[in-house]
Design a protein around this nucleic acid. Sequence first.
DNA 1: ACCGGGTGTCATAGA
DNA 2: TGTCTATGACACCCG
Length: 583
Amino acid sequence: MGWESRLTAASADIDLIDILWRQDIDLGAGREVFDYSHRQKEQDVDKELQDGREREDTWSGEGAEALARDLLVDGETGESFPAQFPADVSSIPEAVPSESESPALQNSLLSPLLTGTESPFDLEQQWQDLMSIMEMQAMEVNTSASEILYNAPPGDPLSTNYSLAPNTPINQNVSLHQASLGGCSQDFSLFSPEVESLPVASSSTLLPLVPSNSTSLNSTFGSTNLAGLFFPSQLNGTANDTSGPELPDPLGGLLDEAMLDEISLMDLAIEEGFNPVQASQLEEEFDSDSGLSLDSSHSPSSLSSSEGSSSSSSSSSSSSASSSASSSFSEEGAVGYSSDSETLDLEEAEGAVGYQPEYSKFCRMSYQDPSQLSCLPYLEHVGHNHTYNMAPSALDSADLPPPSTLKKGNKEKQADFLDKQMSRDEHRARAMKIPFTNDKIINLPVEEFNELLSKYQLSEAQLSLIRDIRRRGKNKMAAQNCRKRKLDTILNLERDVEDLQRDKARLLREKVEFLRSLRQMKQKVQSLYQEVFGRLRDEHGRPYSPSQYALQYAGDGSVLLIPRTMADQQARRQERKPKDRRK
DNA sequence: ACCGGGTGTCATAGA
DNA sequence: TGTCTATGACACCCG
């Protein structure tokens, strides 16, 4: 519904309007342009003018003056954009513990090792905790080893926590405190000299399975290198007997699959640009590991759920050559935009989104300055001609000046040119003999505007036109700003998507790193477990059967030898807890 | 002839 | 209440 058919016919200056209308007919404008209240006649007028009125198509731009004015007005063209690249991975090293751990983790709390749902980070921390606990307990042994060995206090958690084994073959509460280290003490200097020096006869007493101190630990293994610590060169024969391949892995819970149940390497395939083959290879690498099994069953679901939003719709094929990665990044709802160099770079760098804004979206021109359009070759077509109401005569005279016009003087040519540059409202204002510029009409503050109006004796039609010009002019700029904002919003959202995708890819990379270190740690823990277990001896000097006993890690960091049935029960209990929490 | 994008304009809501 | 601004909707133009 245009303004042409909207207005009622009630105006005072009929004559003036008619005159101006006739003038404007030459310009292609209907009567309504002169009086808002007369626009209802537009339909009739249109019928009358149908034959003669043509759309002018040569308004290649607004008035030069207006252009210059607009150029000054718009200060937003140089807007800033959010940073293209998110914080580098190196910027968050604290959150990414590697194998060479930060010292801050060394003294973190110890939690039971046999918990089922630790995050990789927790596991790493637990390992550090284990080491620190060993050192702490070693110091404790140095001072009160004899007390612990011979006079376990009634409240000792180590002796009470696991006193529920009445049927144990060994005679009392089975813990490592009660286990004899027997003949393994010579070459197993992990433990304190005091412990080593204990006679075998004391095997029935509590025996903390802890190193004497960090010094001895370090001296034993030569360095603090964890790899060296957890890959002892060789176990003695006895130890090998009991820690053979058939030894059950009580640390299975340590690396419980639940710990990894949210890990899907297919995420990587999607986010990192890994192709599916690479992803499956990596997944196999983890799955084939001795205990670290990625729950591959989660991969499909992960694909269909969490990743589906960002990868399922790859119909909008990216122009990038980054193959599956880029196509996986293609976002629905962001299709249909042609390639642009700016996004292309991003895309190549990160396998980024397929959403490529059209060139026009990168047009940072001032919406108040259409002249800038002509400065940008690729925006030439934007400079539309919207002089719908210009009369064909005006058009003709502008576009194809008759021979007589060519003979006009420069002044006339200039006048024609300026005439062409004038907007519709400017033509109307001129026709109505408005005594000030449209620029003033539109941009003056209200007070000054009213002041200006009061200075002149203006007819009702003139005042109406002036108000319309002001309203249209302001709304025109508002519409331009609105469209600009809309494009900016789209661009910002697009960049946000790219940033989030980069973040996601980075987090997945870190996840893989965690998995790698987790696997290594599990191997180390397993080796250590087997070594320790293999060196344990009962009161008769015989190794414990791995099918009947297992090492249990207490909450306070101590290590206990308990019957396997009890260990299994506890393991089940540990598994249940997280599930209950989820409910 | 049709389509997509740009632009001007109007109506309207909200500040 | 009047003014200004933002925005959806529409019409028109252009390529």
